[in-house]
Structures are given as C-alpha cells and as structure tokens.
Amino acid sequence: MSFADSVAEAFSGILVESWHIFAEAAPYLLLGFGIAGLLHVFVPDDKVMQYLGSSAGKFRSVLNASILGVPLPLCSCGVVPAALSLKKRGATKGATLSFLISTPQTGVDSIAITYALLDPIMTVFRPVATFATAVVAGVTENILDFSNEGPGTVSKRAVPLTVLPMTSTMPDACGCSSCGSHEIEGENVVQKVRSGIKYAYIELLGDIGFWLIVGVVIAGIISYFVPANMVGSYLGGGIGSMLLALVVGIPLYICATASTPLAAVLILKGMSPGAAFVFLLAGPATNAATITMVLKFLGKRTTVVYLASIALCAVISGLVLDQIYSKLGIDALSIAGSASEIMPEEVKNVFAVLLLPLLVYGMYCRKGCVEK
C-alpha cells in the first residue's frame, strides 16, 4: 500500500469514527439545546440577581449560584463577563466564584450528551459533583474573605471591575452576542419561544459549535489510532491517572459538551471512569484565559481558592466514582453509550444530518458577529 493510500485510509477511518460519535450525540444535543433556549428566555436577569445578590446572605447566595449555574445555558466565552457582572451588581465573591465554576462545568446540553455517550451513573454524578465543587469554592472564598468589603467592591489587590451587563442586544466583551441574556421584556409566549429557538440553535450552537466539532474529531482520531491496551495501561485507574487528567484538563480550553465525546472514547479505550470524570470536571471549569481573568479581576487569593477547589473536588469525585462502579459491580466499558442503543442507527443519522447544518450556520453567524 502506498503512502497516499495509507493517508486516504486513515482519513476515511477518522471520518467514519467521528461521524459515528456525532450521530450518537446528535438527538440528545438537539434536545439539550432546546431546553437551554427555553431557560434562556424564561429565566429573567432580575430573578438571577435576586438570588445571587449579597442580600441573600453569604452562604445562601453561594447555594443559589451553584444551583442556578448547573443548568444555565451561558456560553463558555460569556461565563467570565457574566460572573464579573454579578460581582459588580452586588453578588458576594463566593457566589461569583460558584457561578463561574458551576456554569461552564455542565448544562442541559452537556447532561444530555453525557446520557447519550456515557451512562446514567455519569449523567447523574456529573451535575452533583459540579454543584458540590461550586459550593466548596464559594463557601471557602466567603469564609476566607476577611476584608469586610461591601457589595460591588473589589479587593485592593484586584483590578476594579467595569460594568459588564448581562442583558444587552450588543456584542459582549468577548465579541459574541450570545454571551449574555437579551432583552425579551414585553414579548409574548410565542415570541419568547422563537427567541429561545434562535438562541439555542443559532447563537448557542454557533458559540460552542467549533469546539464541539473539534472535540468530536479528536475523539474520532483517538478512536481510530489509539489502541485500547495503551490507554488502559497508563490511565486505567488510580490517583496517578487522575492527576495526569487534571494536569491536562485545567489549562485546556474546552467546553462541557465538547469534552464529553473525548471522555467517552477514552473510557471505551480503557480509561477508568474516575480519571475520565476528572477531565470532564476540570477541563470545562477552567482554562488559561479564565485563570488570567480571575487573577486580574478577583485577586490572587480567589484564584488560589478557585484552582484548589476544582483540583481537589475533581480528584475526590474521580475516586468516589471509581468506587461507585466497583461497589455496584458495573463495568463502565460495557455500558458506555448504552442509552443511545434505544434509538435505531437510521434515526440517529437523520438527527445528525439535521444538526450539522445548524452547527455550520451558527458558526457562520457568530463569525459575522465577531467581525462586526
């Protein structure tokens, strides 16, 4: 076989594997994005502020921020400006940190794709661990905050915050119109549903579409090239494999939805569910850009609490998850993706064909938004 034939065969194999992963996830992604759009239009900003503000109390605000952040459909680029806006408008520092952690770690779309590509145990465990991580970080930050700063103030060690509005019809600080919630006051139910559909299947899809495709393609490359015994040898379980997953995940820029296909393929190749979960928790929660923003606007101590809470909770969650599978006598490899088996391949391919042009169109619209 010539070199050109080998390259063509590899390219074809990667495409087949990537399409298979994409088709498995497509029905659940479409459902998840739809729910995300409804949340976007029916949960107004003033209600968010009512429960996250300092008037709710240092500990209650953390709980509220953690709960609201788990399903909230904010794009990854919009998490930082939205969280900093919460701080400026009176949210406690702990609530700000909780929101910053819980929002990107999971959402209705990533929960749906977790169910499709992994299994019910991981689907339930993921938002629970996300909530716990956000609470730990927020409560720790509020306990350590001895500065007695009033609402809306910032540490002298941090750069003063400018107002970063959550509600705007103009592109946000990141250059994307989907980062914050848009004004929808005065709209009737039908108009709100239309706005939700537009947000879900154009703006939100466009915002994470590129990284979702990248995640699927990387998963396809891993599935095609990487032998199962190699992954099992180095990442088969234990604290060492989880620390390695943590080191890779913390600086990596990847959203919760895009990270799921990677984790699913690694589990199928022999990675322990606990080590894969460390990657699922740490990867979307933070990246080099987010760390820089937290350091600049919230200060050094908050940044240390932010990273330490994510690292500690991710490793503990990974160890707990491995124990759950062990105690229940369940092999994660045997049930990964089992939820998607209830749907015929033909139906999944139809959903994939519907989703792909929406992804392309959303990315095209987002690119136009940024260029303007």
Rank of each mutant, 00 (worst) to 15 (best):
A4W: 13
A8E: 12
S12D: 11
G13W: 09
F22W: 15
P27N: 07
Y28G: 02
L30W: 03
F33Q: 06
I35D: 03
L38R: 02
V43Q: 08
D46H: 13
M49C: 01
L52V: 07
G53V: 00
A56Q: 13
G57C: 02
F59P: 09
F59H: 14
F59Y: 15
V70T: 14
L72H: 10
P73M: 03
C75I: 08
G78L: 01
A82W: 11
A82H: 08
A83E: 08
A83Q: 07
K88C: 01
R89A: 14
G90S: 02
K93F: 07
S98Q: 05
L100F: 12
L100D: 03
P104W: 02
Q105F: 04
T106N: 14
G107Y: 06
S110E: 12
S110P: 11
I111A: 09
I113D: 09
T114V: 12
Y115R: 10
L117G: 04
L118F: 12
M122Q: 15
A129C: 13
T130C: 15
A132R: 04
V135G: 04
A137L: 02
G138T: 00
N148R: 12
P151F: 02
R157H: 11
P165N: 09
S168I: 04
T169C: 11
M170S: 14
M170R: 13
P171Q: 09
P171T: 12
A173M: 10
C174Q: 11
C174P: 05
G175I: 03
S178Y: 01
C179T: 14
C179A: 15
S181M: 14
E187T: 10
E187N: 11
Q191G: 15
K192M: 03
V193H: 01
R194P: 00
K198L: 10
K198G: 14
A200D: 05
A200I: 06
L204E: 04
D207Y: 08
G209C: 05
G209F: 03
F210G: 14
F210E: 13
W211K: 10
G215A: 06
G215H: 02
V216H: 04
V217P: 05
A219Y: 10
A219I: 00
I221N: 13
V226D: 09
V226T: 14
P227N: 03
A228M: 08
N229C: 00
V231A: 06
V231R: 04
G232R: 01
Y234D: 04
G236H: 02
M242N: 04
L243C: 11
L246E: 13
G249L: 02
A256S: 15
T260H: 09
P261Y: 05
P261K: 09
L268T: 10
G274K: 09
V278L: 04
F279L: 08
A282Y: 08
V294I: 15
L298G: 01
T302H: 01
T302C: 05
T303W: 06
V304I: 15
V305S: 04
A308P: 01
A308D: 05
S309T: 07
I316K: 07
I316P: 08
S317F: 08
S317G: 11
L321P: 00
L321E: 00
D322M: 05
Q323Y: 10
I330E: 07
D331W: 13
A336E: 10
A339E: 12
I342C: 10
P344S: 09
E345I: 15
N349K: 11
L354I: 13
L356N: 04
P357G: 01
L358Y: 02
Y361K: 00
M363P: 01
M363I: 07
K367P: 00
V370G: 10
